[in-house]
Amino acid sequence: MLHNIMVISYFVSFMLFVGCESKVQLPKNLVVKAVFAFGDSIVDQGSNNHIATVVKSNFLPYGKDFNGGIPTGRFCNGKTPPDLIVEELGIKEFVPAYLDPNLKSEDLKTGVSFASGGSGYDPLTATIVSAIPLSTQLNQFKEYIGKLEGLVGKEEANYILGNSLFLVVAGSDDFANTYFTAGVRFKQDINSYTDLMVEKASEFVQELYNLGARKIGIFGIPPIGCLPSQRTLAGGLDRGCAKEYNEAAQFANEKFSTAIDSLSKELPQSKLVLLDIYNPLLDLIVNPQKYGFEEVERGCCGTGTIEVVVLCNKFSGTCEDDTKYLFWDSYHPTEKGYRILVDQILKKSINNFL
């Protein structure tokens, strides 16, 4: 029973991005050769298709609006943040998973995703749902570097890595699956747990830097208490936003900000940027009409209250018009939601990577 609750709650972790109809004006002197992603389901481009975990989305209705309607393992109806970012930067159409058996050599030069749905900064988080932990994602990246050097030579590989954008998206599952659901909150207070998250995140960023990464965007924690599944599980009879969850996210974000500022001073030539997702997503939830949304408390899949991953399937049914919904399932946004968020994030933060 506990495992089922944790799996349901996993649907509750997340982080976002986007791109609007008006293209973001990119700085002329910004060079981005490739985009790489690490973390959880927000940037998992199909990694979990190739491991033994229940956290999968390689079946309909997932991916119904992506590349001909064939599910790829993206936790969305269409494109996800990495896809939208490479699109905005003019690099390529989408970012493939590193574990994709059909991965082309050209994709090694322009970026891949190592992310795994259900992963987090706390090593226990990935273990709960048998996801690929950040430590293994890092090992895969080391393997990737060897392949890239074999393809273009060490000098060119170093140039690509030094002029690429690295996205780190994690932390939501640490709260949703591990801290609040798995009972860690009864053994550890929120202050010490967020200290653990920040410590592990800092270690991960340091490792990326040591391997050649210089432009690293670390996503903050979103208002997880307002995700449809978290409303259902912890929002009371009226399914309001779970206040305690949102307060935990804000608390963690404050610590992440301090830690990233400190790391930036220690790592020469690094551009470490904390990307705020909390406030942009909350604004979409509080002011949906401003963005053309009609439903922000339920997902498009099934009842929209709890369906996610295996619970969101071909028998669930979907809403008539997903462009009116902020969320695709009970914890991942629709492509439209991601586009709006990515657009805002890039406009606000892209200059910080110069």
Rank of each mutant, 00 (worst) to 15 (best):
F114A: 02
P133N: 13
E335H: 01
E266I: 00
G117P: 04
E294A: 11
F17V: 03
E320W: 00
G220A: 07
I190S: 04
N253W: 01
L165D: 08
Y193L: 08
G117L: 05
N67L: 08
S172V: 05
P288D: 14
S116W: 00
K324T: 10
L227P: 10
K154Y: 02
H332R: 12
Y338H: 12
T181V: 10
S13A: 07
T194K: 10
D107M: 10
T110Y: 06
K23M: 10
Y209T: 04
L341P: 09
K314N: 12
P96V: 11
Q188D: 11
D195Q: 15
N77K: 02
G236P: 11
L2D: 14
S9K: 02
V32Q: 06
S113I: 03
V55S: 01
A131F: 01
G162Q: 14
L16D: 09
G183M: 08
S57F: 05
A259T: 01
I51F: 10
L211Q: 12
I340C: 03
D195S: 15
N77T: 00
V86K: 03
V43M: 04
I5D: 15
N158S: 14
L2N: 11
F59E: 04
I350M: 02
C312L: 04
G39F: 10
I221C: 09
G120K: 04
T232G: 01
E307H: 00
V169Q: 07
L267M: 10
P280A: 08
V184P: 02
